[in-house]
Design a protein around this nucleic acid. Sequence first.
DNA 1: CGGATTTGACCCGCGC
DNA 2: GCGCGGGTCAAATCCG
Length: 634
Amino acid sequence: MAKGRGVLSIDSDLISTTSAFFLHNPTVLNSFPDQENIVNPKWKQLATTGRQTMDATSARSPPTTIQFPVKLINTNDARDDDDDEDDDDSSLPSDNRRRTVIDEMDFFARKKHDDGYPITNNSTDDLKDSGSPAGLELNVNTGLNLLTTNTSSDQSMVDDGISSNMEDKRAKSEVAVLQAEVERMKVENLRLKDMLNQVNSNYNALQMHLVTLTRDQKSHHKNKQHDDKIKNNGMVPRQFMDLGLVAAAGDTDDLSLSASEGGRSRDRSRSPGNNVENTNEDGALVFDQDKKGFARGADHREDSPGQGWASNKVARLNPAKTIDQTEATIRKARVSVRARSEDAMISDGCQWRKYGQKLAKGNPCPRAYYRCTMAAGCPVRKQACFLFFSLIIFEDRTILITTYEGNHNHPLPPAAMAMASTTSSAARMLLSGSMSSADGLLNSNFLTRTLLPCSSNLATISASAPFPTVTLDLTQNPNPLQLPKQPTQFQFPFPNATQDPANASATALLPQIFGQALYNQSKFSGLQMSQDMEPNRLGQQSQPASQQNPLADSLAAATAAIAADPNFTAALAAAITSIIGGAHQNNINIKVKPNPEREEIKLGVHSFLKLPVQIWQSRKGEEKRLVVVDKGTA
DNA sequence: CGGATTTGACCCGCGC
DNA sequence: GCGCGGGTCAAATCCG
């Protein structure tokens, strides 16, 4: 079973801040009753963050055990009024008066005593005394009728003139009954919380549908006009982004796929099993664009396993490319999360089952395919593969790229909600059409500021890839000015990353650059990286590596040795060549100033690779350059 | 023994 | 039309 064992690091501040921009109500995060029992400490803060909402929810929930003692006090007051037969001219009904005659409340008398209002069981004088202070609570209505049974029995007690021993026994039995009742109410409370959570989830899902469908309608007119522009200037990527709006109407898998494939039959010659997984067996509503309405999932079986990965299925459709059909060609957004993890899977709170593994070209690290198994028919899938360069350059600092697609059709545990909210919101941002770009890679200020306000470099959008993809880079340290370090929330398995400025910057920059390159291989034309790229970032990392890392000197020596090793050269070149597919023009220029802070880049490389690369050093020795040589000539 | 994983084969789109 | 690559399936295998 594929269980997330990796250490995923997400800053909960980031999430909490981000959640303010989520379309669906983040309170879902807090609606699970088991927050106290969260095992993983990494998520505890999330649970704690949500506790306010939980408390509020509890306060609004049906009567709890807290309230009914108040009701008892109220009864005592009434009893007091009645017991004072001589002085009292109470207008209470006769039954209430009879009820108050009961002097059964041994344990309540004790409680009152504790509260400072002493009551003696059989003393009517005491009953008189006890009446006045409790009168403040007369108006408290607990909504519980727990006293009904008690009072009736008490009434008979009084009439029968039972002794104090019997009263003690009765009191004990009533305590037991009340305790059982308390337990029952606790269980009921938990059940109600579950129901509330379910309602919240349903509400959020419906809200998302409504928003996206409304947006779809509004954008439909725009798309018409936009298509004309596209015809004229062939701005396919632009068109693509706009089509994303339609996909956004699904926001979730179901809708987009239905819209894109509605009315067409799949020609895939697979076994019927292909259709099993995405048919919404749970009866989820699916929007059928052809039918202009929602249909039950059971009737919506044209889809294939790829409800999740819709893109290639969309491409399988009728190749005739009219504008309308192009509109129907909806590619689903993907959200790629880049996190530091040494395990093949990050722990995102969901249960995944691995259904395939593929050795993608250019990456010796196989890509694993997972599907969500938390609910039958859940269309969510994810891919996971290690960032190759992270293995090359930071051997001990692997970066795992996890790509999600689709939305879950089932309630999620809090831990999963964090990731799901992040990814779904990112996908919505991508598909919202508010940040369309004429060309592939862009850094969206909009997305950055809204989805990930803590950092300006955490989110990247790629529309040129086969799928619109939002990449959330969780490998970087957020801007320390905006987000103080909180290493306790999520633990990256790389302690040095925050300690060593050089490491921090390098680990942040390289994966960002190379990782994006991997996702845009078709557009890859060269990369440059310099220490000057982010002076602020480096400036905020105060101490030089040599001061903080006692191994700096030895590392520098090792670096020099490794860099001089022809095996290293060959290995690194081979790796890069492999990644970029041996394209002739693909020279990767990595400017490396001879700075001791860089020494970690070269560690442990040549044990990993075997193909050639050339390292060129400038005359002055200020700069080293890695040149990828063609596979045949290297 | 049931469920999860592995892995070779297959399907399909796309580029040449 | 053919080959390549991504994605998926499903039988075989593993494992608790």
